[in-house]
């Protein structure tokens, strides 16, 4: 079984993100970069299928030179091969990313293509569905549990007020939610082996963008909140605040 996992390198969740001085873009991030947390769970699922069914796992990342580090991290977790779809900067339009990734993925047959539900930075929430659309294969979004047999996958997902059980044939694209599995840590041996594993580099073919950022700004900062030590009058004061100031009850 050949599995591809699309991983996006994103700023660490704790990292500070600012508008750039130009007022219309987001400033280059200068903190720690991580593998998108949902994608890490996708890598974990692929590695579980490697452990249980001997799957061969290839991780694929599109982006500038820095994303090689994310690929090495996934190799250290246990992925077998990596493809770096290289471009100068991360595209603003997820459709552009999806097109270039789909072009790369179409070069080989995959039993399964895994991705994350959403990138925590740009929050595009569409690359997996677009890849599946381009390849003409089924896609299931926001997957929280999955089992794969010879020719089908059976997955569970949550939507508002309901749990869905979805079945489809493979090959398929599954967009994984982090809740599916906690990713394993790379072992020392894994890290050493990752250094010797191949990272194929291909040039991304990026088409025109379908959207542009016209302004970036900080959200209204909350005024320094009112903070009190709980005491005899707190409940009455708090309720008065909610009624008279916030006017929400």
């Amino acid at each position: 079984m050949e599995i591809a996992v699309c991983i996006k390198q994103t700023p660490d969740t704790e990292g500070a993100v600012h508008p750039a001085a130009d007022g219309y873009s987001v400033a280059p991030f200068d903190g720690t970069w991580i593998i998108n947390p949902h994608d890490e769970a996708a890598v974990e699922l692929a590695l579980q299928l490697k452990d249980s069914a001997g799957a061969h796992v290839t991780v694929v990342a599109l982006g500038p030179a820095r994303v090689e580090k994310a690929l090495r991290e996934a190799l250290a977790m246990g992925a077998d091969a990596a493809v770096h779809v290289k471009c100068d900067a991360m595209p603003v339009d997820p459709a552009v990313t999806a097109r270039a990734l789909a072009e790369e993925l179409a070069k080989r047959h995959w039993s399964l293509i895994l991705a994350g539900e959403v990138a925590i930075d740009s929050q595009g929430a569409q690359v997996p569905q677009r890849i599946a659309g381009r390849l003409g294969i089924p896609c299931v979004g926001a997957v929280e549990a999955a089992t794969i047999d010879e020719d089908h996958c059976h997955v569970q997902r949550m939507v508002e007020g309901a749990r869905e059980y979805v079945q489809c044939t493979i090959p398929a694209v599954l967009a994984i939610n982090r809740r599916l599995a906690e990713p394993r840590y790379p072992t020392f041996r894994g890290i050493m082996q990752a250094k010797r594993k191949p990272v194929d580099v291909v040039e991304a073919r990026l088409g025109g963008t379908g959207m542009a950022v016209r302004r970036a700004y900080l959200p209204d900062s909350r005024e320094k909140g009112h903070m009190v030590q709980y005491g005899a009058n707190t409940a009455a004061d708090a309720v008065r605040f909610l009624r008279a100031v916030a006017k929400v009850i």
Partner: peptide
């Protein structure tokens, strides 16, 4: 121009997007 507001990065920044395809 129609500008759509989004709150990416877990709401750390807001951006206004212009859509360039027809439809969108």
């Amino acid at each position: 121009t129609i500008l759509l507001t989004r709150a990416p990065y877990g709401g750390k920044v807001n951006v206004e997007m212009q859509m360039l395809t027809d439809p969108w």
